[in-house]
Simulated assay, not measured.
Amino acid sequence: MNILGALKITVKKGIDLKVCDAFSSDPYVVITSGSQKLKTRVIKNNCNPEWNDVLTLSVTDPDMPITLNVFDKDRFSRPDKMGDANVDIKSYIECMQMGIKDLPIGTAVKKIQPDESNCLDDESKVVWIGKGKMVQEMTLKLQNVEKGKIQIKIEWLDLPGCKGLPKLNS
């Protein structure tokens, strides 16, 4: 298994998450890709939690789905599922592959619109942050639940000894 690099995912916050307990929820986020599973901390009694947790996922295949699941932690029973979303990194990787060397910091390299193929709640931009790096912030609309959104930010990390940015299969 060849690691191409890593994806730094900052799970920023939840917005208007489902109430699972009497008046609130104790939400946390689980991000999975292949056999990898990463988890944020639990925020107690909050349907608008702010995690700002940074999770790092090894990338071996840019086409492998990245799934975000939100759960309500329960003390004496299994966690309640509060929705899920797929994180689409293809547009981000395409921008990184452009080989751009220098742009004014804050330049939007690409704008991605919400559609039926992604879980975006509104327009998402891939933004140049300097020194060969770009970030993409996105608000994901949770699926399989009546309401709730999660804000995340992604950034590619080149790792020493790794192949570097992958070529996408279109």
Rank of each mutant, 00 (worst) to 15 (best):
L4F: 10
G5M: 02
A6V: 12
I9Q: 12
V11W: 04
K12F: 07
K12D: 07
G14C: 09
I15N: 00
L17E: 01
A22H: 11
A22G: 03
S24K: 03
V29Y: 06
V29F: 11
T32S: 15
T32H: 08
T32M: 12
S33W: 03
Q36Y: 03
K37A: 07
R41W: 04
V42K: 10
I43L: 02
C47W: 05
W51I: 03
N52I: 00
N52L: 06
D53C: 08
L55V: 12
L55Q: 14
L57F: 11
S58C: 14
V59S: 00
V59E: 05
V59H: 02
P62Q: 11
D63W: 04
P65K: 03
I66G: 00
L68C: 10
L68I: 08
N69P: 02
V70P: 05
V70F: 02
D74P: 02
D74F: 09
R75T: 15
R75N: 15
S77P: 05
R78Y: 14
D80E: 09
M82I: 06
M82Q: 10
A85W: 14
V87L: 15
I89Q: 11
I89L: 15
K90M: 11
K90A: 14
Y92E: 00
Q97C: 08
Q97L: 12
M98S: 06
I105P: 00
I105A: 03
G106I: 01
G106V: 00
A108T: 02
A108Q: 03
A108D: 05
S117P: 04
N118E: 09
N118R: 04
L120I: 05
D121I: 08
D121M: 12
K125C: 08
V127E: 04
I129C: 01
I129E: 01
K133N: 05
E137R: 10
K141N: 15
L142W: 09
V145A: 06
E146W: 01
K147W: 03
I150H: 06
I152D: 05
L157H: 09
P160R: 01
G161A: 12
G161E: 12
L165C: 05
P166M: 08
P166G: 11
K167Q: 10
K167Y: 03
